[in-house]
Design a binder for these strands. Structure first.
Lengths: 171, 171
DNA sequence: ATATCTGCAAACAGTTTGCGGCATG
DNA sequence: CATGCCGCAAACTGTTTGCAGATAT
């Protein structure tokens, strides 16, 4: 399982996208923004990947995307391994949706733009009063964990109690 | 790819089904009848397979069915190869339906009992008059070919013209 | 330094396929 | 004969995983 001596042959570069293609750079940048928003760090490979996803269109399979990339990139194309891995991550982060076609192959598509920042509310264990919680990081973490179980968070209410009250007494 | 010297170790036998199981023998015989109806020849292995399908319940996967069989048969259990092959055939013949679950694995279930002998009608190219065609073999052939493409025939109207009229002139 | 990312190739899982043997018509 | 079924094991296919070098924080 040993890899070849040379890694990262030549940095995958969005600039190397062949002229004429990449027409939808706008859409890509939009998705890119969304990635950052949900805490998905961008890299060269990933930026390139996004172009491939957009260019391949909705419902494309992993290899289809890869082939599209191979066609539109002049230099080095990300390995299928990295591609699949990043697709999975994008799904976990909720940027992409994924479902199986009748040929048992994953189809990817950009997730519908929901994101009303997801309603996270704290519920006071004692009074029952609700307190809105505008914490994108919390929302994101929940979304991430849920996604790991194939679920999508609709809303979350977190029962809390003043820190002075012991957990056991909470009601 | 050479097989071992001995084939058919011990004939798979429905009789060898462990006591207590096979409670749904009725349902099995019903499906068995349907198999014959669509021209799917029964064999020992296939009969056993049907028991497995029924016992495993709707939406079972191929290996699930196989495991169930392994649990309910005393003697020799059909190989997974044969099992899959026969499942495919059953799907082709329309006895089973098949679709993919969210884990990208085929799920099998007994096809809903439609079969109103499937309406096949001839439409006269000249007059537009419809002529019912009660030909189960035609219906079956269509069903089979359609199944090969993952489709299910709902109805078929075949435009025809009196044999004296050349195809090109038909309207 | 620690954490993350990537390429590569091996590993995986479910399914399909090729072959020889055998049984039946 | 010809046809078709079955067991076995190899082949296939899309996906996942382990490792080590590379990069970023």
């Amino acid at each position: 399982m040993l890899a070849s001596p040379e890694h990262r042959l030549s940095p995958p570069d969005v600039q190397k996208i062949r002229a004429g293609m990449g027409a939808s750079g706008k859409r890509v940048r939009q998705i890119e923004r969304r990635c950052r928003a949900v805490g998905f760090k961008m890299t060269d490979v990933r930026r390139v990947l996004l172009h491939g996803i957009v260019e391949a269109g909705e419902g494309a399979t992993a290899v289809e995307i890869w082939k599209v990339l191979r066609g539109m990139i002049a230099g080095h194309v990300p390995s299928q391994g990295s591609l699949q891995r990043n697709l999975n991550l994008l799904v976990e982060h909720g940027v992409l949706h994924r479902d199986v076609g009748s040929d048992r192959v994953w189809r990817y598509r950009v997730a519908p733009k929901d994101r009303p920042t997801l309603a996270v509310t704290f519920v006071d264990a004692g009074t029952g009063r609700e307190i809105a919680c505008h914490a994108p990081e919390v929302a994101e973490l929940l979304r991430r964990i849920a996604a790991r179980h194939g679920l999508a968070v609709r809303e979350a209410s977190i029962t809390v109690a003043p820190s002075s009250v012991c957990a056991g007494e909470a009601r």
